[in-house]
């Protein structure tokens, strides 16, 4: 369809799709409400169908919302902004493919930010499967967007070592002991990124991206607190509320769930317009999130109305 053939107020296919899906969902909720008032059982599969529609519709007909960074996310962004070029940041991929949709966007956005600022990145992982997730960042962000950045000079991947918090307990005093080489077998001493870096204490910032164990909590307990190393994190939503007590004293900032990632992406695009055309998966995900949350909120409201009605009836008896 070419644009000059369209009348000025014509709706695009996407708009029609949006309106239709909203109408379907609203109609469905009304039907649900009426059935609930009449005390008719609703099959649970209907509920699943609602969630499915409210997630799929915004994916097929994308709606992007503007996000403004909350202080806890802004603190991470500002910290990276404040580091002078050449500073060394450690990015730990403490997650597996199961968590990736939530936290991979964070890892990508932070990598982008560090590289554009001229910071050096050490990539590692406490999850064996984190290795594969780093490959995704390498292939989708570093190689296409930063072709001039050189492995071992601007970034290095030291990979995975078994031992969970034991690994952290060693690298707080000596990196080389745990990571004598990078993943490709290049000896520690000939990696330019590690020049002047002996242990985690020499790092300018550590960011743990994850949501399981070992994860950010272990980083705080075994590296941040004992070594006085600035620690930030990007965590899956399930863990975020449990990590708030560490902010800001023991953890300088946190990206909580996809919302945190979306805020970070929008902050990045706002400061660096060159990333306008880079993928922003988290921002795109906020559409389905918003609609699905609205539907769930409607469920809660309907459920509570029903509960109140029942209680009133019970009292009358």
């Amino acid at each position: 369809m070419t644009s000059h053939l369209m009348p000025p107020l014509a709706l695009t296919l996407v708009d029609i799709g949006r309106i239709l899906s909203l109408a379907v969902i609203a109609g469905g909720l009304l039907w649900l409400f009426l059935r609930a008032i009449k005390r008719k059982e609703v099959e649970r599969r209907v509920i699943f169908l609602f969630i499915f529609v409210s997630v799929v519709a915004p994916i097929l007909f994308p709606t992007v919302f503007q996000e403004k960074a909350t202080p806890i996310v802004k603190d991470v962004f500002d910290k990276i902004e404040s580091l002078p070029p050449g500073s060394v940041v450690l990015l730990s991929y403490d997650f597996d493919p199961a968590m990736a949709p939530e936290v991979q966007p964070m890892a990508d956005a932070i990598s982008r930010h560090c590289l554009v600022r001229g910071l050096k990145i050490i990539y590692m992982c406490l999850f064996a499967t984190g290795q594969g997730q780093f490959t995704s960042t390498l292939e989708n962000v570093i190689k296409p967007e930063f072709p001039d950045k050189v492995n071992l000079v601007d970034y290095v991947n030291i990979g995975y070592k078994a031992g969970n918090e034991g690994v952290l307990n060693v690298i707080i005093t000596d990196f080389k002991k745990m990571f004598p080489t990078d993943v490709d077998g290049v000896p520690y001493d000939s990696i330019a990124v590690f020049k002047g870096i002996r242990s985690c204490k020499d790092l300018d910032l550590v960011i743990s991206i994850g949501g399981g164990k070992p994860g950010i909590k272990e980083w705080i307990l075994f590296v941040g607190d004992p070594g006085n190393v600035p620690i930030a994190s990007g965590v899956a939503a399930v863990v975020a509320p449990l990590m708030y007590p560490y902010y800001p004293a023991q953890m300088l900032g946190m990206l909580g769930g996809i919302k945190g990632a979306a805020e970070y992406e929008s902050e990045l695009v706002h400061h660096y317009p060159q990333f306008k055309n880079s993928p922003t998966p988290a921002l795109l995900m906020m559409g389905p999130q918003t609609l699905a949350h609205l539907v769930i909120m409607a469920f809660i409201v309907i459920g509570n109305i029903l509960y109140l009605l029942e209680r009133k009836k019970g009292r009358k008896r």
Partner: peptide, 22 residues
């Protein structure tokens, strides 16, 4: 709050899978 965050997390995972499918 924790429950709300969990819902957000689960929906993100669903979005991830559905995006993959489509």
């Amino acid at each position: 709050a924790s429950f709300g965050y969990t819902v957000m997390g689960r929906i993100s995972l669903l979005v991830g899978r559905i995006t993959f499918l489509f």
